[in-house]
Amino acid sequence: MTIMEKAGPEQTGATGTAPLLEVRDLHVEFHTRDGVAKAVNGVNYSVNAGETLAVLGESGSGKSVTAQAVMGILDMPPGRIPKGEIFFRGQDMLKMSAEERRKIRGQKIAMIFQDALSALNPVLSVGYQLGEMFRVHQGLSKKDAKAKAIELMDRVRIPAAKERVGDYPHQFSGGMRQRIMIAMAMALEPDLIIADEPTTALDVTVQAQVMELLAELQREMHMGLILITHDLGVVADVADKIAVMYAGRIVETAPVHEIYKAPAHPYTKGLLDSIPRLDQKGQELYAIKGLPPNLLRIPSGCAFNPRCPMAQDVCRTDVPPLAAVSDTRASACHFWKETLDG
């Protein structure tokens, strides 16, 4: 059984039985000239209202592609979803009509991208783009939409919103542009926000400002948040639970406090061990050997086996299922017990 999230304690909470979003056994592949790239190979995760799920993984592990599938913005073709379900409030979005999905996108689920500059239209003013949300979705007049845009800019603390509503994206700093992206995502008060590396391109001081703003708005509006990142520091700061991805699969999921104390997958352990520690100054850092696999040629068995210090024969032949470690944790490792103890 690979769906451990069912056992999560949050599901018994006041919000009802179904999680806000649940991805089950999702597969995504890309048909390229060189062959079929298996970018997502059976992803399972879920998030509840008011909860922050961090999706952690190195570049190329399939974090963004999974998010694009959830948002319904995957390029198809070359992309294809051969298998999987994506439940939003209990309804499988992959079975919905294009019209039904369109209604969810933006209004119920919104997305924030890493690169705000390319996500915004360079030739339209920021106020126009924010106002558009209200004109299109709520039929507001131009004047009312502009007022709403100013209100939103205030809310994400852009100084002098009234004076700057007519400015263009390039006239704002990177941090301010990311605030505009957040404002855009928040505009229709969605239930779920997917933030794909929202602060990766920003300096730490700006990152701190943006993350604080995001967390505050999430609390106020009781939204679910999926935060995609490769930064173990950011995860520790804001996440309730975490899903670690490797080669298109979730290799471990757990509440954030538990995973930092005792990881149950050698890949997670390797990532945590490679953080520089004070008592190791001047010594070599722990480094996971080798490189992430080519998605056209994912190793048989466990995809991590060529890099894994614990690999045995079974790891080269059998794909380890994402198996329950406890009520709230799961690991896709044949030797999760040994990893947890070691």
Binding site: V204, Q207, A208, V234, A236, D237, H257, Y260
Partner: peptide, 19 residues
């Protein structure tokens, strides 16, 4: 103070200077 610390236990007792 803005650098996120990779330890969730430190969340509660950190003073952050947000510029």
């Amino acid at each position: 103070s803005a650098v996120p610390v990779p330890d969730p236990e430190s969340r509660e007792h950190r003073e952050r200077i947000i510029l």
